[in-house]
């Protein structure tokens, strides 16, 4: 809140946001060029401008381009979902991974893989959507009275929900070796080998989710004043909460179905958004989406570079880099937004 006055006046967008927007193409280019077989700038421009079937062209278009698009989409989705959840719960630690929403989506996906023989990305997104919506409603209902004070009880409720759903997930997975084998590669959270058309399948969900999030952010500026004040200023509080739930559900479901549960991207993006634009939620969602995209693609590139010629899955990189951030936030920051 106190930061709003410092950043809100004068310039349309703070310098940090411009820098972040410039980082998106930088991360994209790095993701296209770097990896087990690093491409020179010449090879990359050749592949992008006049592809004619050379080795570099194939690498870029069949492997790295879908992967990068997926990273941008999923990162933007997780970042915006993180900001939105932080706004609704008024808790600096809220994000899909920590609050159990991703775990709900993951459990629903595993159930659908095992019992309904779902094998299309669309079916997985649908299953993940149901799971995410139920988990988000549950965690919000359970920690409701601490929500207004932005209490850390929400994080503990999320951890409990994650553990509960995780146990159910492993019960399902352990009873069937085939599900186990596909589960472990999906559960780690990775952008690799997700299929050529996955980005196209989840793109509509992410775009609708982002639009809903942007619409909802305007209500968040009012909700920040408290439910009663917001209602007296003409806001339909219940509808605003439901739109928020729908946006978080769409964004989380699309990302979990495509890449598995990836924690901390939402937390990082939300923290960055608040540092850059303060309490303006509508800008926060924009910055959160940008930051999420940069962070996820960046983590993916880091994972490819540090473990070459193999790679570290992006979920591992974000977990190992994100946990210290969580600890830093809880040590230094005011948790109540």
């Amino acid at each position: 809140m106190p930061r709003a006055s410092r950043n809100g006046s004068g310039r349309l967008l703070p310098r940090g946001v411009t820098l972040l927007a410039l980082l998106v193409p930088v991360a994209t280019i790095a993701s296209l060029a770097l990896g087990a077989n690093a491409l020179s700038p010449g090879e990359l421009t050749h592949a992008v401008l006049r592809p004619d079937g050379q080795e570099g062209d194939v690498i870029v278009w069949s492997l790295r381009f879908p992967r990068t698009m997926l990273g941008l989409l999923v990162g933007a989705a997780l970042g915006a979902a993180g900001v939105l959840m932080q706004g609704h719960t008024r808790n600096a630690l809220a994000e899909p991974g920590l609050l159990g929403v991703s775990a709900g989506a993951a459990f629903a996906v595993v159930l659908s893989l095992r019992f309904a023989a779902v094998d299309t990305m669309l079916g997985m997104v649908a299953a993940a959507g149901i799971g995410a919506a139920l988990a988000a409603t549950a965690v919000y209902a359970l920690a409701r009275h601490s929500v207004h004070e932005g209490g850390p009880a929400l994080v503990v409720a999320g951890a409990a929900l994650t553990a509960f759903l995780g146990a159910l997930t492993s019960a399902v997975v352990l009873l069937d070796a085939k599900t186990l084998d596909s589960y472990r590669f999906w559960a780690v959270g990775s952008l690799a080998e997700r299929g050529q058309d996955t980005p196209a399948v989840i793109a509509p969900f992410v775009i609708v989710g982002l639009l809903l999030a942007a619409m909802n952010a305007r209500s968040l500026d009012l909700l920040a004043l408290g439910n009663d004040v917001a209602a007296s200023m003409g806001l339909k509080v219940t509808r605003a909460r439901l739109v928020g739930l729908a946006a978080v559900t769409l964004l989380t479901a699309a990302s979990v179905a495509a890449c598995g549960p990836i924690a901390f991207i939402g937390l990082l993006a939300g923290t960055l958004a608040r540092a850059l634009v303060g309490a303006s939620w509508i800008r926060g969602v924009l910055v959160g989406a940008l930051a999420g995209a940069v962070l996820l693609v960046g983590s993916d590139v880091i994972g490819r570079l540090v473990a070459g010629p193999g790679e570290l899955q992006v979920g591992v990189v974000s977990g190992v880099l994100g946990a210290p951030l969580l600890i830093w936030v809880i040590r230094r920051r005011e948790l109540i937004l």
Partner: peptide, 28 residues
Amino acid sequence: VVVGVGIAAAGTSLVSWLLTLGDVMVVG
């Protein structure tokens, strides 16, 4: 407690990564 949740999350992602390295007979 929240620091603990962070440590647990970092540990969990390391374990998930370790699990992808092994043979499925060991992973089970």
